[in-house]
Simulated assay, not measured.
Amino acid sequence: MGAAVAVQQEKFLRFGAVAELIGLSRSTIWRMEQEGKFPKRVQLGSKSVAWRLSDLNHWMSSR
């Protein structure tokens, strides 16, 4: 039998969930992103963005 491979799917959070998790305002997150002090958002569609949960977890653990 072949070995079972567990594939973990990346989770993406929209701004509301990010703000609740991090506790920062939209303008603070935007400023920190521009300064390279916060994970970059990912373009999901023409008008939607989100952040990778793994990037946010890494950022929080490094603070």
Score class of each variant (00 low, 15 high):
11 K>W: 15
62 S>M: 14
10 E>G: 08
42 V>Q: 05
19 A>N: 05
55 D>H: 08
45 G>S: 11
2 G>I: 12
13 L>N: 07
62 S>F: 13
39 P>T: 01
1 M>Q: 14
22 I>Y: 02
10 E>D: 13
45 G>D: 11
22 I>L: 03
17 A>M: 11
25 S>R: 07
3 A>F: 14
2 G>P: 14
19 A>H: 03
53 L>T: 07
42 V>S: 06
18 V>P: 02
50 A>C: 06
11 K>T: 15
58 H>L: 08
33 E>F: 03
43 Q>I: 12
25 S>E: 13
21 L>R: 10
15 F>V: 01
57 N>Y: 15
51 W>N: 07
34 Q>K: 05
35 E>C: 06
5 V>T: 14
46 S>Y: 12
29 I>H: 04
62 S>Q: 15
26 R>W: 00
35 E>N: 04
21 L>Y: 13
15 F>C: 01
16 G>H: 02
53 L>K: 01
28 T>W: 00
16 G>A: 06
28 T>V: 03
18 V>Y: 00
40 K>R: 10
48 S>M: 09
11 K>Y: 15
9 Q>V: 13
33 E>S: 03
48 S>C: 07
10 E>F: 09
14 R>C: 15
7 V>I: 13
3 A>W: 09
55 D>S: 11
27 S>K: 00
19 A>V: 06
51 W>R: 03
52 R>W: 04
57 N>A: 15
27 S>I: 04
46 S>D: 14
60 M>Q: 09
55 D>C: 08
31 R>E: 02
63 R>F: 05
47 K>T: 14
47 K>N: 15
42 V>W: 05
52 R>G: 02
38 F>C: 11
53 L>M: 06
20 E>H: 07
31 R>L: 02
63 R>S: 07
38 F>H: 09
40 K>F: 10
3 A>V: 14
57 N>G: 13
11 K>H: 15
5 V>S: 14
53 L>Q: 03
29 I>G: 06
